[in-house]
Amino acid sequence: MRETNSTEEKVVTRTGAPQYSTAGAPEATVVNHGKRGLAGKLNRLFAAVPRPDGKEYTNEQVAEAVRASKLVKTISQSYIWQLRNGVKDNPTFAHLRGLAAFFEVPVSYFVDDEVADRIDEKLAALRAERERIAELASDSEARLIAMRAGELSPQGRRQVMDLLNVVHELELSKRGGEVPEP
């Protein structure tokens, strides 16, 4: 568990996960002189962190959630639009902190290209996995297999899994893929 000192406060992100931030932080302005600008990073977050229905958050939804977090007194959808379009590129630390909390990334994502690169890689992998799962869920044969497997006894499910593992390993070896350890 994380200990907090008197200058830290616990905030809750959009998914309810606790995140800690400096309560008495000055309203210092943060300028991003990295190889990628603030607008690009913010737009990547919008694209990579979808709403529960899979669609992209709107500027208004993000502004409302950031205001509700109480990390920022005021932030509007038009200000977020300006940040996303490069019209404004010098937000206050409080604005960055609020946006970071919403998207569940560290504030350093916006100012450190190495941190942004690492997080972007993780977000891309997560997005690919989400798309793979959605594709599987829409496949009627895969759903039928899952439904039938759910009706089997535990022993029957183990036998089906063993058979699936054999077929999976065969297909991987045919494609030249690496066969995973059991």
Rank of each mutant, 00 (worst) to 15 (best):
N32V: 04
A25Q: 08
E169T: 13
K88H: 14
S76Y: 07
E114Y: 05
K73C: 10
N165H: 12
P91N: 04
A63C: 11
P180C: 04
E8L: 09
G98M: 01
V49P: 00
E135R: 14
E181H: 13
R36M: 06
R2N: 12
G16D: 07
A94S: 13
I80H: 00
P182E: 14
T58Y: 00
G37R: 02
R67F: 11
D112I: 00
A101F: 03
M161G: 11
E135L: 14
L123W: 06
H95N: 09
H95E: 10
V107Q: 03
R84H: 04
R14P: 01
A47G: 05
K174Y: 11
T15Y: 09
E151T: 13
E114M: 11
V160I: 15
P52A: 07
L96D: 00
M161A: 15
E64D: 08
K35I: 13
V11I: 15
A149Y: 09
G40N: 11
R130A: 07
D89L: 06
E151V: 12
S69M: 09
V115S: 09
M161H: 12
N32D: 11
V111Q: 06
E60W: 09
L45G: 01
A23Q: 12
Q61P: 02
S140Y: 12
E64H: 05
E141F: 15
G54K: 00
A25N: 03
A25V: 04
V166Q: 13
E169P: 06
D89M: 09
L164C: 14
T4R: 15
N85M: 02
I133C: 07
N5G: 14
T22I: 11
T22W: 11
V166L: 11
R157E: 02
L71Y: 03
A63N: 08
R97W: 03
V105N: 00
H168T: 12
R175W: 10
R148M: 15
T29Q: 05
K88E: 09
V31C: 08
P52C: 03
L83T: 00
Q77W: 07
T74H: 12
E135T: 14
P52Y: 06
E114K: 10
P91T: 01
V105C: 03
M1R: 07
L172C: 10
E9Y: 14
G177H: 09
K122H: 12
L123C: 08
A142W: 09
A17C: 06
W81L: 02
D120A: 05
K70T: 14
F46E: 00
E56L: 08
L164M: 15
S6Q: 13
N90I: 08
K35Y: 07
L123S: 01
I80M: 01
I75E: 02
E8Y: 10
A39T: 05
R14T: 03
A142M: 10
G150T: 10
D117T: 13
A116V: 05
A146V: 10
K88I: 05
T58S: 04
K10H: 14
P106D: 02
L123R: 05
R2P: 09
G40T: 13
S138P: 04
Q19A: 05
N43Y: 03
E135V: 10
